[in-house]
């Protein structure tokens, strides 16, 4: 049983009070450039998923609390939540650095951008 914490309203409850929404930080290509969406980009958006064994970043919804979507970082082997953060935010810096595989690739630019600013 997972214990989830909502970073928006502060509610804490087990997984039945929340709704898992799958992989976080998925970008819909048509939102940004509706004219030039390739079949491959649309496939990646709809179907290709980061599926790491270890640290993963997900969306959750506070179903029986404030109803807001938020982000969570969780280990898919130990099931331990590492952080909860807002729906428009990036994960804490140390988690972005710990990320492996496809997530490491995804966060590389974000880390660089953060270092510059």
């Amino acid at each position: 049983m997972l214990v989830v914490h909502c970073p928006v309203c502060g509610a804490e409850g087990d997984e039945t009070d929340f709704h898992g929404g799958g992989q976080a930080h998925v970008r819909r290509p048509a939102t940004h450039d509706p004219v030039n969406v390739s079949d491959e980009a649309q496939r990646d958006y709809l179907f290709i998923r980061h599926n790491p064994k270890g640290l993963h970043f997900e969306r959750w919804r506070c179903d029986r609390g404030c109803g807001k979507w938020f982000h969570a970082a969780r280990d898919t082997v130990t099931m331990e939540f590492k952080a909860f953060y807002g729906i428009t935010e990036l994960p804490p810096r140390e988690l972005m650095e710990q990320a492996t595989g496809e997530w490491a690739t995804y966060f590389k630019d974000k880390l660089k951008a953060e270092a510059k600013s």
Binding site: L2, E15, G20
Partner: peptide, 10 residues
């Protein structure tokens, strides 16, 4: 309903 590699369910 969420990703899991642990072979233990909820």
């Amino acid at each position: 309903p969420y990703n899991n590699y642990s072979q233990r369910g909820s």
